[in-house]
Simulated scan of single mutants.
Amino acid sequence: MSNLKEPKIDAERRRARGAQSNAASRYDAQREEVQDGWDIPEERAIFATEVSEERPRTMITRNTSPDIPFDRSLNPYRGCEHGCTYCFARPTHAYLGLSPGLDFESKLVARPKAAEVLEKELRRKAYAPSLLAIGTNTDPYQPIERRYRVMRSVLEVLQQFKHPVAITTKGTLVERDIDILSEMAAQGLAQVGISLTTMDVALSRAMEPRCPLPQRRLQTIRKLTDAGIPVRVMLAPVVPGLTDHEIEALMEAAAAVGATGMAWIMLRLPMEVAPLFEEWLEAAYPGRAAKVFARMREMHGGELYHAKFNKRMRGEGIYAEMIAQRVEKARVRYGLEKDMPALRCDLFEVPFERDGQLALF
């Protein structure tokens, strides 16, 4: 399925990781294996989580994609320790000269000064507020957030500016920030999407190894909604032949704990994600691989993925239409058919500078 085949890393070295291998970045023009004449067995270290730091020039990323309902987003971290095998953000690690495989989930980049940089952007005279999406690439509440608290500091800035924010996460650490999010939600400034893929504990552990278990995420939905924070359940992704039979059960479970809206995305396999997911599926669920990839090709004109706007998120064809119909019927059945409340932009205001002076410029 790809020419990116690499030897699998020993299972003990990649314990609690999602990817099976660590292929070089697609930007590495030349890869060469050299025999140095030594054949002495060598113990290799496990893939421990390593975190480096960077100070970006900007924090707000703009997009003009016609099938995305926001034009700006923010990412506190590069890479994601959750290690989801299907993550469409994996190829972004190649921009750093790192592998979209195990490097993506073990060599992370934190942005400790994110809030400071964001504040300067929001103070610019020409800045016009609009929904800011966080968690659309890598998870802002992955485990290292407990140490770095980048997301917490970003939310504090957004609260000060009364800036609308929509968060997507699998991380239960979002509960830590209920104090800020509930106050913002009361003003129509915040909502959260909690991603669910399966209720099968074994499948969840294999497919998204360092994510909180599904039942724990349902508890998070309840805690957020009890605090007055609107929550959308995200079926992201629906995996053909592996999780698609759970669509109704996932929606029913989320509605039962207070979710008021839902969204869904079909499995996406851009660039390096396809061979990585293939490796994982053939190792973990070999009996399902043929069906999963047959469905993917059916939805993308014979390819595993096609990045056409308005088609890439859902696919095309009979199977894709069937899934869409099932989702719509279940939305009505479980009371998830309403749109999430629109977030307010009219409350945005530039607060005093930290030294107490008026922010005129």
Rank of each mutant, 00 (worst) to 15 (best):
L4F: 15
T260P: 00
G101R: 12
V109T: 10
I9W: 04
K338D: 09
E282S: 15
A94C: 10
T169P: 06
K291C: 11
K308Q: 14
K113R: 12
C84F: 04
Q215H: 06
Q215Y: 14
R72Q: 15
F361L: 13
G302C: 05
A259R: 00
I229Y: 00
Y148I: 06
I46V: 14
I180W: 01
P69H: 11
V117Q: 04
K170P: 07
C80G: 07
E321Y: 07
P7A: 07
R216W: 02
M251L: 15
S195V: 15
A294N: 10
V174P: 07
A24H: 11
R31F: 10
E156V: 08
R297V: 05
I144A: 00
E42I: 09
N310W: 12
V109C: 11
T198V: 02
R288N: 08
A290Q: 13
V201R: 15
G228D: 01
A29E: 09
P230L: 02
G37C: 12
I247A: 02
S204W: 12
I60C: 02
R268C: 08
V238D: 03
P275F: 06
P7T: 07
E248R: 13
M1S: 15
E175S: 15
L173W: 10
L336H: 11
Q325S: 13
I178Q: 05
T243P: 12
R44D: 09
M340Q: 12
V192P: 05
L224G: 07
S65R: 07
M322I: 12
Y27R: 09
M299L: 02
H82Y: 13
H82R: 10
N310Q: 13
K170N: 06
M1R: 14
Y285P: 03
T61V: 15
T58F: 07
V51E: 05
G261E: 08
E282M: 13
L347Y: 02
A115R: 00
P164E: 02
S153G: 01
Y27V: 01
I265E: 12
P270L: 02
E303I: 04
A45T: 08
V154N: 00
L96T: 03
K107W: 04
Q30V: 13
S25M: 06
P351E: 08
L360P: 00
T198E: 06
I68S: 09
A89W: 10
L343A: 01
R314M: 08
E298V: 00
T198M: 01
D339T: 07
E328D: 14
A289E: 06
P69A: 09
Q215T: 10
I221A: 03
M59R: 09
S130V: 01
T169Y: 09
R15L: 13
I178W: 06
F70E: 01
T85P: 02
R344H: 08
T172S: 09
F277K: 07
H306F: 14
S21E: 10
L102V: 09
K329P: 00
A320D: 05
N75L: 06
L358D: 11
R17M: 12
L131D: 05
Y334E: 02
I265T: 14
Y285L: 11
T220F: 01
A294W: 06
M199L: 15
P212S: 06
W38L: 13
R146V: 06
R232G: 00
L158D: 01
D355W: 01
A16W: 15
A11F: 09
S73F: 08
E282T: 13
T169E: 09
M266Y: 01
A290N: 13
T260L: 03
R326F: 01
A227D: 10
D103S: 14
G261W: 00
E156D: 06
R149K: 14
R205H: 12
K170H: 04
